[in-house]
Simulated scan of single mutants.
Amino acid sequence: MAVMKVLEIMANSNQSWEEAVKNAVRTAAKSVKNIRSVYVKDQTANVEGDSITDYRVIVKITFEVDA
């Protein structure tokens, strides 16, 4: 039986929500091993004028704890 933990992370990108999610996973992977999944909990964006300037996500990253 595997033991799993969940880490909640906020990340951003000036390109897209997808890139923001990738940034969250890349950042988590620097200190957490055995990442198994990512769940997008929330998405928001900053707008200036008629353009989106920043995409933000809150994600839950699930990883397996070493036995």
Rank of each mutant, 00 (worst) to 15 (best):
K41Y: 10
V6H: 08
D54P: 00
T44Y: 06
R36Y: 04
V59S: 06
F63N: 03
V47L: 10
N23F: 05
V57L: 08
I52N: 11
F63P: 03
E19C: 03
Y39V: 12
A29F: 01
A20Q: 03
S16A: 08
V25D: 02
N46I: 08
M10H: 05
V3G: 01
S37F: 00
K30R: 13
N46Q: 13
N34S: 15
A67K: 14
D54W: 01
Q43S: 04
K30Q: 14
A11S: 14
A45V: 11
V25N: 02
M1P: 05
D54C: 14
A20T: 06
I52A: 12
V38K: 03
S31L: 07
D50C: 02
A29T: 05
R56Y: 05
K41F: 00
K22F: 04
K33E: 14
S13Q: 05
T62M: 11
A45E: 10
S37L: 04
A2H: 08
T44V: 12
E8K: 14
K30H: 11
I58M: 07
S31K: 13
A67V: 07
M10F: 02
D42R: 10
Y55G: 03
S31D: 11
V59T: 08
V6R: 06
Y39P: 00
K5H: 04
E18H: 05
V47N: 09
A67M: 12
N12M: 09
N12I: 00
A45Q: 13
K60W: 06
A45T: 05
V3W: 03
A11T: 04
V21Y: 01
R56D: 04
R36I: 08
A24D: 02
Y39L: 12
T62L: 08
Y55M: 10
A11C: 09
A20G: 07
A67Y: 11
A24I: 05
A20P: 01
I61R: 03
R26D: 15
N14F: 03
K5G: 08
D54T: 13
V57W: 02
S13F: 03
S51G: 01
I9K: 09
S16F: 02
V65M: 11
R26C: 09
E19H: 07
T44A: 13
V47Y: 12
G49M: 10
D54A: 11
R36E: 10
S37K: 08
A45Y: 09
K30M: 12
S13N: 05
K60A: 15
V32C: 05
T53L: 12
T53I: 15
Y55L: 09
T44M: 09
D54H: 07
E8M: 08
E64K: 10
Q15Y: 09
A45L: 12
K33H: 09
I61L: 08
D42Q: 14
W17A: 07
L7H: 02
V25E: 06
Y39S: 13
N34Q: 13
I61Y: 02
K41N: 13
Q15L: 14
V6S: 12
N12H: 11
D42W: 02
S31N: 12
I52P: 00
N23T: 07
Y39D: 15
D54Y: 01
V38I: 09
M10G: 04
W17L: 05
I52H: 07
A29Q: 12
K22R: 11
S51W: 01
E48P: 00
S31V: 11
V40Y: 04
V6W: 00
V38Y: 01
V21R: 03
Q43R: 14
